[in-house]
């Protein structure tokens, strides 16, 4: 109610209060990850060997890859729930074209173009028609999954070239790093630079915090959003290729539900669901925190049901955590609903 509304000249009283809840939260998540890793190395049998670590990382890579553009998208005030279906559609197209005898490299290029197209459809529905991305991408989530089923039916394609399958599941020398971790590292580094050190990155946060003020400052709001959706589509489609190679199986239902893991990890990493705040470091820490936890629970023979419950609890806490941290401060910087109704 109006009772705690404040006027502008009051706000100087708040000058000294710490405000960056998100920044603190991503540090918390990073620290949690380190603690979890230390505990796991010292107490969980079989955790520290190279094979297990490569499984952990390899199985986490799809989420880790899509979390990069998703972090930008959420920081930009939008969301894409169709990523899991895009992974599935990309894999299905890959399988179908391979069955047709097409060259594998050409197939990968086609999948990439397909991903761009998927992202573009989302982007145009959001920017041209002004629809909320949550609703748009719930729709395209069903659409893309449906297309995947049309393309591949209930077939399962597995006979991809061995050297490609090796890329999907192999390790670098005898180390714990999966081969596919290398391109991911390059992509992650690029994403960090783009979001946190370029003008484009600034625009993303500006758009997420206030699209109106950003537009008044000359930011090309629609173009920013369009780029983010397209990047998300592209990375999702490439992840679809990796998924097929990693699990040596192309089916229409690859990566079902992946969007929830991605969004959950990003939010766990402290990226504000309302946009304008968040770091890629936090999101990546969130991804690997969840991945490690699942790996450890499997090693400790925790039942699948219990694993789901533990993950669910953690996710709930993670969505609440940054909120609560921020609300402690937000209580003091409450702003009244604007007068215009």
């Amino acid at each position: 109610m109006a009772d705690i509304a404040e006027t502008a000249d009051q706000s100087r009283d708040l000058r000294r209060r710490p405000l960056n809840g998100a920044l603190r939260w991503d540090t918390v998540v990073g620290a949690l990850l380190v603690v979890l890793l230390l505990i796991s190395f010292s107490t969980v049998n079989g955790f520290g060997n190279a094979l297990n670590l490569s499984f952990l990382i390899g199985n986490t890579l799809p989420v880790a890859a899509i979390a990069l553009p998703m972090t930008m998208l959420v920081a930009g005030g939008e969301i894409d729930l169709s990523v899991g279906s895009t992974v599935g559609l990309s894999g299905a197209v890959m399988g179908a074209l391979w069955n047709h005898g097409m060259n594998i490299n050409e197939i990968i290029v086609i999948c990439a173009v397909l991903g761009v197209a998927c992202g573009l459809v989302n982007a145009l529905l959001v920017t041209k028609l002004g629809l909320p991305s949550l609703a748009v991408t719930i729709g395209t989530m069903a659409l893309y999954r449906g297309l995947a089923q049309v393309v591949l039916g209930s077939n399962s394609v597995t006979d991809f070239p061995q050297n490609y399958l090796d890329f999907g599941s192999g390790r670098l020398g005898g180390s714990f790093l999966p081969t596919a971790a290398l391109p991911w590292l390059v992509l992650a580094a690029a994403a960090v630079v783009v979001l946190h050190a370029t003008g484009f990155g600034r625009s993303v946060f500006a758009v997420g915090a206030s699209a109106e003020a950003a537009w008044f400052a000359g930011v090309r709001v629609k173009r920013v959003k369009l780029s983010l959706f397209v990047a998300t589509g592209l990375v999702s489609a490439l992840t679809g290729v990796f998924w097929v190679l990693h699990y040596a199986s192309a089916t229409y239902n690859n990566a079902t539900g992946l969007e929830l893991s991605v969004v959950a990890a990003v939010l766990l990493g402290g990226v504000d669901f309302d946009g304008g705040r968040g770091t890629l470091g936090g999101a990546i820490a969130g991804v690997f925190l969840l991945g490690t936890l699942q790996n450890v629970m499997s090693l400790a023979n925790v039942s699948a049901q219990s694993q789901t419950v533990v993950t669910g609890v953690l996710l709930t806490v993670s969505v609440l955590g940054p909120r609560v941290a921020r609300q402690v401060f937000a209580a003091s910087i409450y702003q009244p609903t604007r007068g215009k109704l």
Binding site: A197, T198, F200, A209
Partner: peptide, 26 residues
């Protein structure tokens, strides 16, 4: 006029990011 949840310096710089940007980096 402003992005309330951004810092003073970023708000001042927002309309003229180019001035602080070299080769794409701010």
């Amino acid at each position: 006029g402003l992005i309330m949840q951004m810092s003073v310096e970023r708000n001042i710089g927002l309309a003229d990011l180019k001035a602080a940007t070299t080769a794409g980096f701010v």
